[in-house]
Simulated assay, not measured.
Amino acid sequence: MTKKSARQMHVFKVVSRVKVDGERRYPYRVLGVPLEADLYTLAAGIVRAFDFDFDHAFGFFDGRDPYRSGVKYELFHDADMQDELGGSDAPSETQVAISLLLEVADQRAIMRDTAEFLARRLREELLPNVPDRLRAGAEAELGRVAYEMLDLDADLELGDVPPDLREALAQPGGLERLISLYGAMTGADDAAAPTERGVKGVSVTEPFGRTPTWTFLFDYGDDWMFDVTYQGVQDAPPRVRLPRVLDSLGTAPEQYPEWEE
């Protein structure tokens, strides 16, 4: 009888750059992922191996400083995120900047202020022609008309930009970074721009053909960073679901620590 060949997996060692107080070594996890896995699957496996919630954007970078890396694989570059930034019509940098800034603006407050300005302008223009006996009512009515003209009874569309994008935008230099990111996705950057790709559908081993160790950044702003090293193909444990933690050392840092006041 021919022996059935063992199922195989890619193996990665992931070391956190954050060490828990009282522990001598930085925590690590050895992770097995399916041979057909993409970078999105690897990212999800890493995040869950350290007991984090998979609730933020992320990327893989060829340098220790993600913001200076020459080669990047980021969730921001995938088609669904690109659509959120304006699709393939390639608006100008100014249009992109305004669109992004509007996502974090208090649009309803701006519209209320605009309505008050419009009401004041209408009163200045029209009230001099209103008989004195009607002025009080006309003044109040013009305020209502201004709100109706701006359709403030309707819900304002705040868009479907992912929370991660809003969070990245709120960081120092976030607007400039996201404008540059959009340019890279639309081909607007020059030949000297970093090589940037998405993570979905990208083979889990593609980056590691360049260099065996990459920086994995999770949650822009909090900047959780991990060193990810490819260790090759091994036989997978029988009857286990991949991704799977094969070995571990140390306590994972808390994703959302309770800060003492």
Rank of each mutant, 00 (worst) to 15 (best):
Y73E: 04
A90Q: 08
F216V: 07
L42V: 09
P238A: 14
E139F: 07
V161F: 15
E139W: 07
T205E: 05
S5I: 08
A97I: 09
A37W: 02
E125P: 01
S69M: 08
E124K: 11
D190Q: 09
V202D: 00
H10I: 02
A191K: 14
F216S: 11
G174S: 08
A37R: 00
L75A: 14
V20R: 11
G59T: 14
V233Q: 06
E36P: 00
L122K: 09
D164S: 15
P238Y: 05
E206L: 14
M149C: 05
E124F: 05
R108M: 07
S69G: 07
G63R: 12
L169R: 03
G32F: 05
Y67K: 15
R25Q: 12
G173L: 09
R29I: 01
R177K: 06
D83C: 07
E176D: 14
A154W: 00
E125R: 14
D38F: 04
A136T: 14
H56S: 09
A57C: 13
D21A: 15
E176T: 11
H56E: 07
K72D: 03
M185H: 02
G87N: 03
F117E: 10
P162F: 09
R48M: 06
D189E: 15
A57H: 13
G201A: 08
E141F: 04
P243N: 02
L39K: 04
Y40L: 11
A184C: 11
S88N: 05
L158V: 09
P243K: 02
T251P: 01
G22R: 12
G143D: 11
R121H: 09
R17H: 09
Y182A: 04
D132S: 04
E74T: 07
F208I: 10
D235S: 12
D219W: 10
L42P: 04
D21I: 08
E176S: 14
L178P: 00
R7C: 08
D222H: 10
A184E: 12
Q107A: 12
D190E: 13
F218G: 00
D113N: 06
M111S: 13
E148I: 01
Y73F: 15
E167Q: 14
P194R: 07
L127C: 05
V130Y: 03
M185G: 09
S16E: 09
P66W: 10
R135A: 03
A252Q: 06
L158R: 13
Y182W: 12
T94D: 10
E254K: 13
